[in-house]
């Protein structure tokens, strides 16, 4: 079972991903968080296998959270999950070696990316 933490400042995106991932065999959403700081705390407490992380959030953004996660909890697989990704976001995710998935109503691309990062880490 892959244990996932979902982080997005939009509660309805958290609700959607929890419903979709919990419905898939082999996945369990163990928690949700609304910003990067909350995500870090929950990662320390829950030790998920993977984190699905929005990038633009008030408070501690996803960009800042990635830096801290990679330093402190490098075994957690990170997926950047964002509405749109311009050159800056794409380049930054390549530089940080973080897998990027665009938000759509379809769960398969995200599930596939989670499996990949968990296998790698």
């Amino acid at each position: 079972m892959i244990r996932v933490l979902v982080v997005d400042d939009e509660p309805d995106i958290c609700l959607l991903l929890k419903l979709q991932l919990d419905f898939l065999p082999g996945f369990e959403v163990v928690g949700t968080a609304a910003d990067g700081a909350d995500a870090l705390e929950q990662c320390r407490a829950l030790k998920p296998d993977a984190i699905v992380l929005d990038l633009l959030m008030p408070g501690t953004s996803g960009f800042e959270a990635i830096d801290k996660l990679q330093t402190e909890l490098p075994h957690i697989g990170i997926i950047a999950y964002t509405g749109v990704a311009g050159d800056f976001v794409r380049d930054e995710m390549v530089r940080q070696r973080v897998q990027l998935v665009l938000k759509t109503g379809e769960i398969d691309p995200l599930a596939e990316a989670i499996r990949e990062v968990v296998e790698r880490s």
């Binding site: 995106i13 609700l15 959607l16 419903l19 419905f23 509405g83 749109v84 938000k103 109503g105 769960i107």
Partner: peptide, 30 residues
């Protein structure tokens, strides 16, 4: 595009979730 993406993603995904969920409480949330 960014601003439309969240509600469009949510509506599409939740409509699918609604069709597969039988739990009345979950359906209410959706």
């Amino acid at each position: 595009g960014h601003e439309l993406r969240t509600p469009v993603t949510t509506v599409r995904g939740l409509a699918d979730a609604l069709s597969t969920s039988a739990d009345p409480a979950v359906r209410g949330k959706i």
